[in-house]
């Protein structure tokens, strides 16, 4: 996982497969980063995510809830067509904006 800060926007690049095996450790890493603060908005760049199932959806949804509780905005950027299909089917876009 890589990240960069532009102004008050935190851009987090996720990569590889987001499934049950990878989600648990990724959650710890992301939450550690989010706990540092200093941003008002978080953007998850999914352009390098090769696969996602409902465990990965749970990871994204969990970060959304966490950020919402902190009064921060969360957006999703550049999912591949297959990841985009999964996000659509699971209803993620009804609560998280794709930019």
């Amino acid at each position: 996982m890589k990240y960069e800060m532009t102004g008050s926007s935190l851009l987090v690049h996720l990569s590889g497969d987001l499934d049950h095996q990878t989600s648990a450790s990724l959650r710890t890493t992301i939450d550690k980063l989010l706990s540092l603060g200093g941003y008002s908005e978080v953007v998850f760049d999914l352009s390098n995510v090769t696969f996602i199932d409902s465990s990965g959806i749970g990871l994204i949804l969990g970060r959304y809830k966490l950020l919402k509780s902190l009064n921060k905005t969360m957006n999703i950027k550049s999912p591949t067509p297959s990841v985009d299909k999964m996000l659509t089917v699971s209803g993620i876009y009804t609560i998280i904006r794709k930019i």
Binding site: S23, S54, S55, I57, G58, L59, L61, G62
Partner: peptide, 8 residues
């Protein structure tokens, strides 16, 4: 837990 959203 976070990863079980009941969508499987």
């Amino acid at each position: 837990d976070d990863e079980c959203v009941g969508l499987g």
